[in-house]
Write a protein that binds this DNA or RNA. Structure first.
Length: 327
DNA sequence: CCCCTTAGGTGTTTAGC
DNA sequence: GCTAACAACCTAAGGGG
């Protein structure tokens, strides 16, 4: 139970993270009082000071004045003196701040350029575009790596897995697999693949619990990058889920050993293939706890393993039968 | 509450067109 | 490339200690 609460708070935090940037700039000096006389304070942005309205005490000075450094007395003066461009926007990867070289071969007065000038401009356009996209990739990568880091730590995945995930993501980016897919989706898929490759698998359910994408997108993207990057990923070994389930349920080492044996017997009996590894691991843990007389209910196991009780029931009976045969 | 069974729906894989 | 059969899993409903 505590496990799920932790997860939800984490997702909430990340949800908030998006909005902080836009709200930090808001002014908030309205309700402050003067430390000397208790009068109201006013912010004078022109002089960069916060002053008490009653006694004139300057509380704060040398603030940054974000207004224009010139004064305009009517709107035409304002137009004349202003020399800034359009406001920045988050809709462009670089907030619209990078340079764009116009496509018309005209100079600032509208005259056509000479042919040598035209060629020069063409070269400049090419290089400018290269730098811009390189930067956009870098930014993309930076955000994705942040996401990977966040999800990995929410899932308790070790450093090495994050490392692998970033390598996978980088390759996906280099091979231009990103267009048409979300950064978040590819990041999630990369991490999922990395976790499985390293023998620290997390189930799809666990992944999407900390990610902002749904399972459809996640599995689709995962399949896609696996195929395109020719990643070899073996089906997850049920045993790799065992230690985590055991510790999440506060069970003993004995249970863990028992679960591993049950899975081994099951492997001998050939009933592991085709079944969901998570379900098998959950069933083995439940069965082992039963044998060791340690108290867990099927619903508890189904909770930590995100698997249905029905599946646990079906699996654990099979596992116990396999044990009978081999014993 | 805990466990079990059954039925019906869904999604994936595979054989055959 | 499409369809049908198929296995595994899920949810939901209902029943026994």
């Amino acid at each position: 139970m505590s496990d799920t609460t932790i997860r939800t708070t984490e997702t909430e935090q990340t949800g908030n993270r998006e909005t902080t940037e836009s709200t930090t700039e808001r002014e908030s000096t309205s309700e402050q009082v003067c430390p000397e006389c208790g009068g109201n304070l006013v912010t004078d942005s022109e002089h960069g000071e916060t002053v008490c309205r009653e006694c004139g005490l300057v509380v704060e000075e040398n603030e940054i004045d974000r207004g224009p450094e010139w004064r305009a007395f009517n709107s035409s003066e304002k137009d004349e003196k202003s020399r800034v461009g359009s406001p920045t926007t988050n809709m462009m990867h670089d907030k619209g701040l990078s340079t764009n070289i116009g496509w018309q071969d005209k100079d600032a007065y509208g005259r056509s350029l000479s042919s040598s000038q035209r060629q020069k401009m063409q070269r400049l356009r090419t290089w400018n575009e290269r730098f811009r996209t390189r930067n956009s990739k870098e930014r993309n990568l930076k955000q994705a790596l942040g996401e990977i880091d966040r999800m990995a730590s929410a899932l308790g995945l070790p450093e090495t897995v994050r490392e692998t995930a970033s390598v996978i993501y980088r390759r996906a980016l280099d091979e231009d697999l990103l267009p048409g897919r979300s950064i978040e989706g590819v990041a999630t898929a990369s991490l999922y693949a990395a976790a499985r490759q390293s023998g620290n698998p997390r189930s799809i359910d666990e992944m999407i619990a900390v990610s902002r994408v749904d399972d459809m997108e996640m599995t689709r993207t995962y399949r896609y990058i696996i195929r395109e990057l020719n990643l070899e990923i073996k089906p997850a070994d049920p045993e790799s889920y065992v230690p985590r389930f055991v510790s999440d349920l506060d069970l003993s080492d004995e249970v863990e050993r028992g679960a591993r044996e049950l899975l081994e017997d099951g492997r001998q009996a050939g009933l592991l293939s085709g079944k969901s590894p998570v379900g098998l691991a959950a069933a083995a843990v439940y069965a082992a706890a039963l044998l060791a007389n340690e108290k867990v209910t099927q619903s508890q196991v189904s909770d930590v393993a995100s698997i249905s009780e029905v599946t646990i029931r079906n699996r654990y009976k099979e596992l116990l039968e396999a044990k009978q045969v081999s014993a």
